[in-house]
Amino acid sequence: METLKNYLENMFLSLPNTPEVRKAKSELGQMMEDKYTELKNEGKAENEAIGIVISEFGNLDEVAEELGIKTYVEEDTSSGELLCLEDAKAYLKDTIKCSQLIALGVMLCIISPTPFIFMGAYSDTANSDFAVVRTGAFAIFVMFFFIGLAVAFFICAGVTKGKWQQIKRKTVGIDFHVTDYTKTQYESLRSSHALCLSIGCMFCILSFIPVVLISAIIPAGFWVECSAAFLFILVAIGVYLIVFTANRNAGYQSLLSLNAKGTIGNIHVPESAKEVEYTSKGVATVMSVYWQTVTCIYLCVSFISFDWHITWIIWPVAAVLRSILNTCFQKI
């Protein structure tokens, strides 16, 4: 029976997701099931029954023509191939790897200014100028080391992702089997996703606590001046969790949305993952490079002013601005 269900789902994959098509699918499914049950009751073997049902199923073009959707069927099945299950599994594995790399990179970027905080705290309490210069040089070295490592991670993730861009371009969609697999996996990650998001947010929100606590307990001195570093570290952990889980989720969603928009095969894509459309072309262009621009501004401002302790504020502001832009210019 599973085979017949797969067969039917795959036949309908590229048809538009309309009430008429869904009705046709359920009716045909019903007829196949009835026939299969009867053949089995007659004592036919599983494979034989399936063979008979499929051979007597007919051609879907006929139904499509009747429903006035002939063009859809032809257009979609000729131009490419379906992604196979092995590829889908490999893609998901790579997605998780990339998510980890990107999240680690972002984390390193966030904690990269912390050596300066330690250095500042140290130089204020240190005795000799020589020690100050030495720690300063060390802090710069560590910062660039972190940033360098982050960039390496980003490149690594980009290369892995690039490999899949090619495959995505060649394929027209995923069949029912793969959709089912991906969807089950995606569903099973739901609680882990929610957990990562909430813990991540909690870390970000509560990141100021060490600063407050330390300055409340200990009078001014080395540790109080260092306390800002803990803020960065907590934010970095929080952001790691958020970026990791968001990227992982996006990977699953991009796989599920491989099937053409509005087709039966596309029904599993969550509403939130559908691409946002904007009312004006200009806004759409800006939004397509939004985070890259923000990153650029962040790095430029930070390197010019060297006010790393405050420039991070660009990120929350940018996030808020983005949701405002989305609400104002989104096509409903």
Binding site: A24, E27, Q30, E56, G58, N59, V63
Partner: peptide, 30 residues
């Protein structure tokens, strides 16, 4: 209903005509 009709067609035609599911559904729809 669908399958009953297709079964009757098969038996009344002396198994000489087996209607395809898609043909049957198209006919119903039309």
């Amino acid at each position: 209903y669908g399958y009953e009709i297709s079964k009757k067609i098969k038996s009344l035609s002396g198994e000489k005509y087996i209607i395809k599911e898609t043909t049957l559904y198209s006919a119903f729809n039309r």
